[in-house]
Design a binder for these strands. Structure first.
Lengths: 146, 146
DNA sequence: CCTATAATGAGAATCGTTATCAATTAGGAA
DNA sequence: TTCCTAATTGATAACGATTCTCATTATAGG
């Protein structure tokens, strides 16, 4: 999705959540919108050259996650990493390099994704869970770490 | 795997790691060996009725993970949850409740697991990753949180 | 321009986890 | 068994990541 289109989508979403789209929030969206993978608060802080204080950054992440603009995930250790929510970035899964920790987005083909979705629905209903999402993490070694 | 068989496997592994299989460690293995899903340190502490102090519990978890007896994972909010390593518990996936953080183990059927394995191999090779494992996490709401 | 409300930034507080260290325990040699 | 040494334990302090508090600042709407 082109940058200004993404920005408009986010702006709309925030407006309808009654939340202002301030410059700090724009900075975070811009950083994550062009990131190669999910980023932690610390990484974002560095990437934004400390232009917004950690406390504000954390709050911004909470607000944006609460508004459904960002999604958090926890793969390596307990640190939270954020990425654009799937309605903005598209549904995808992750390749995680067990060597260097690199996380790369991957999209499955339509047929495969449908298979997966069926599995998920079946399994969840058997356990009286109402499934709201799924995530396939493929652990491996990237070219560099092979 | 029957309890005493699991205990013997763990004992052997610890011996060959030069680590003693003490009563605290036995208690943790027993608790996790019969759990329905991965447990956090806090949950284990409660489940063991505070019989071993938190500091010892955390250390025990580190030791057992280091010896390859336990595996950690991080799903909700970054809290670490531990389960028996797959060579002891068998390959499985997780249902995660986004409401309360409950994690439940689920095994896919042979056919489904094979489908999944094929997906993983295909996708990984397309990205020049050598896959060493995979994990499917199904996010939803448990009966209580529905 | 005013006013009500949202957002900010600095710092303190909290949570889960890890490190420190003296005291205890356990396996092996004599 | 008894001693010796090293591993283990438990209380506590320290730590890093995150969240909260609150006084100040900025903003949209009348």
């Amino acid at each position: 999705m082109p940058v200004q289109e993404l920005d408009r989508q986010v702006a709309d979403r925030l407006t309808s959540s009654g939340v202002r789209y301030t410059s700090g929030r724009r900075a975070v969206v811009a950083a994550l919108g062009s990131a190669a993978g999910p980023l932690s608060a610390a990484e974002l802080h560095t990437s934004l050259e400390s232009s917004l204080p950690l406390s504000s950054l954390y709050r911004t992440l909470m607000v944006l996650e609460g508004a459904g603009v960002l999604a958090a995930h926890f793969s390596i250790k307990g640190v939270a990493r954020y990425e654009m929510a799937e309605w903005l970035s598209g549904h995808h899964h992750h390749l995680v390099c067990v060597g260097c920790g690199l996380v790369e987005d991957v999209e499955l083909g339509v047929a495969q994704e449908q298979q997966l979705q069926e599995m998920v629905t079946n399994v969840a209903s058997a356990f009286l869970f109402s499934a709201v999402g799924h995530a396939l993490e493929i652990q491996g070694r990237c070219e560099a770490c092979a």
